[in-house]
Write a protein that binds this DNA or RNA. Structure first.
Length: 257
DNA sequence: ATGGTTGTTGGACAA
């Protein structure tokens, strides 16, 4: 089973790029973030013509996630539990071929001195609690998406310059570690220990892409049963170099069977 | 270098 995650930074602005990449990469499941449209405005027909079932969770202007699958999706969950008052469209989860799969868009959290940072930390607490609950089930679990977390020094071009950023502060990294401590495996780093310049995001500004000034913030977390089936996890830098590119590029996970 | 870019939206805000 091939699963791709991609923050597309507006599904409408990115539609030709995304459709072309899906046509060549041909993943079974696609996790999108920052679709930036309301649920009803998601361009479902275009994805259906590539053979995907579409499950989008959107809102006006910001955020929004989607779960696309060539096989049927069961038991859809459209919000992260733990805060019924939270209206931001950042989470969708469903079961595909017996695997519990989520597409998540974790809050950015900048600027750190504002309400945005505690919101990020609370969201991470909710994700940790839910990730723990999912381990009680007998299905393999794949939590993929834009985590807005730089896990370690080797995942950013300038660790010292990013130390106080919401994506890299100590509290952020410790919360991420709490999820791993439950028994989850971060797929890319497990398969590529020590690999440098393996980024998934490059800012639009200041020539970040041509200078390879990137961050690795798009991740797959796997439960033990999913990690047992881990075959490969690769970053495809191709789409970042195209015209009208998203600032993120896809990460592709392959599970056995 | 208190800059720079992109998207949504029609002025800021978010990233």
């Amino acid at each position: 089973m091939k699963i791709a995650t991609w923050n597309v930074n507006s599904v409408k602005a990115r539609l030709p790029n995304v459709l072309e990449w899906l046509g060549s990469a041909d993943p079974d499941v696609v996790l999108l973030q920052e679709i930036k449209c309301e649920t009803a405005a998601f361009p479902a027909l275009e994805f259906q013509s590539l053979g995907y079932q579409v499950h989008a969770v959107g809102q006006k202007s910001y955020n929004g996630v989607a779960l696309l699958s060539k096989q049927p999706v069961e038991d859809l969950l459209t919000r992260l539990p733990g805060a019924p008052e939270d209206e931001q469209a950042r989470y969708v989860e469903g079961t595909v071929a017996g695997v519990r799969i989520a597409s998540l868009y974790l809050p950015n959290g900048n600027p750190v001195g504002t309400e945005k940072y505690p919101y990020k930390l609370r969201w991470m607490d909710r994700l940790r609690d839910h990730a723990g609950d999912l381990l009680a089930g007998d299905r393999p679990v794949v939590l993929g998406g834009d985590y807005n977390v730089i896990p370690a020094d080797g995942d950013v071009y300038d660790p010292a310059g990013w130390r106080e950023d919401a994506l890299f502060r100590r509290e952020t990294r410790l919360k991420f570690q709490e999820i791993l401590a439950l028994g989850y495996t971060e797929a890319f780093r497990a398969l590529h220990p020590g690999l440098a310049h393996a980024y998934s995001f490059w800012d639009y500004q200041a020539g970040a892409w041509p200078r390879d000034m990137g961050l690795r913030i798009d991740h797959f977390l796997l439960s033990p049963r999913a990690a047992d089936r881990l075959v490969s996890c690769e970053i495809d830098r191709g789409p970042r170099g195209r015209e009208k590119a998203s600032d993120h590029t896809p990460v592709v996970l392959t599970l056995d069977a």
